[in-house]
């Protein structure tokens, strides 16, 4: 049962990340996803310090805001201070992450719930420790599962309702502005969703490997389809596949679960890439053969 809940929780993380990752990838903002996932740390620590519990709404809001703040600072650096785009990203998130590390060391001394290890790598194996039990004895799954579900509904709903907006923002931002769409609102809304997703995912998969969930499945999906809706579906499929296969591999080889999931994800990308190349060269050869 615990295995099932762990896989289910991780699968929802993977789906949330995959859906948003598609738009990050198409907007050439993959590294901004990386930046957000690190920059939420000071927000998490500060909010945790004040609320004292991991599941609080204050923590979600505080951490999400600190992620959005990071994208705002990145924009500011690159536009006003004329720092190159990737340099602005590198500066901002390392700075915020470093502040977060110091805050952990000072505010969280001796606290078992949040430490550097957990923040960096997550602790998916411990997800089942924080149980929700109703009627005194009915176990309905770990708390993280429900946090993920709520975040998932927000992400899924936003993408369904705002599909046209996100699509146009990703394809041609100047054109979107020219027809009177408030692109900066859409931009910050998307960044907010990414921040929310990485915040709720951090205790499951950690701040570093969440990027693997955000970027690798959409990148794999882009290899197999030329349609946006199909790309969203495929990204979810590849994400969940990596979770299931990764979990089984981790149990079999007795290694880090999240590590195995991201490794599988990367391997799936390589495999799909290889297959697509092989197919293309085959079809190219048959075209040439037909012409001869």
């Amino acid at each position: 049962m615990n295995d099932f809940f762990t896989i289910l929780t991780a699968s929802i993380v993977a789906i949330n990340c995959a859906l948003l990752g598609v738009f990050l990838l198409l907007r050439k903002m993959a590294m901004v996803g990386d930046a957000i996932s690190h920059a939420v740390l000071p927000g998490i620590v500060i909010a945790y310090y004040f609320s004292g519990e991991k599941g609080s709404v204050l923590l979600l809001v505080g951490a999400t805001l600190s992620g959005v703040l990071a994208t705002f600072v990145i924009d500011l650096f690159s536009r006003k201070a004329r720092v190159q785009g990737d340099a602005a990203i590198g500066m901002t998130y390392t700075l915020l992450f470093a502040v977060g590390m110091i805050l952990i060391a000072t505010l969280m001394q001796g606290n078992a719930d949040i430490d550097q290890e957990c923040v960096l790598y997550g602790d998916i194996a411990l997800v089942n420790m924080d149980k929700i039990i109703i009627d005194d004895n009915l176990y309905i799954g770990p708390r993280a599962l429900y946090t993920e579900l709520v975040a998932g509904l927000v992400v899924f709903g936003s993408i369904i309702v705002g599909f046209k907006g996100f699509k146009l923002l990703s394809f041609n931002e100047d054109f979107a502005k020219s027809v009177g769409i408030k692109t900066s609102r859409w931009h910050y809304y998307l960044m907010g969703l990414v921040a929310l997703t990485t915040v709720v995912a951090f205790e499951v998969v950690g701040a570093v490997l969440v990027v693997g969930f955000l970027i690798i499945p959409p990148a794999t999906a882009q290899l197999v389809t030329h349609k946006l809706k199909a790309m969203l579906v495929w990204a979810c499929v590849f994400g969940v596949l990596a979770v299931i296969a990764g979990y089984m591999a981790a149990v079999y080889f007795n290694v880090s679960i999240t590590g195995a999931m991201v490794t599988v994800s990367g391997s799936v990308f390589a495999l799909v890439f290889g297959i697509m190349r092989l197919r293309r060269s085959k079809s190219a050869k048959s075209v040439i053969a037909a012409e001869i």
């Binding site: 198409l26 050439k28 699509k167 990703s170 394809f171 041609n172 100047d174 882009q222 389809t225 030329h226 349609k227 946006l228 199909a230 790309m231």
Partner: peptide, 9 residues
């Protein structure tokens, strides 16, 4: 100004 590899018809 746009990426024509965008998944769209």
């Amino acid at each position: 100004s746009v990426d024509w590899d965008f998944p769209a018809s």
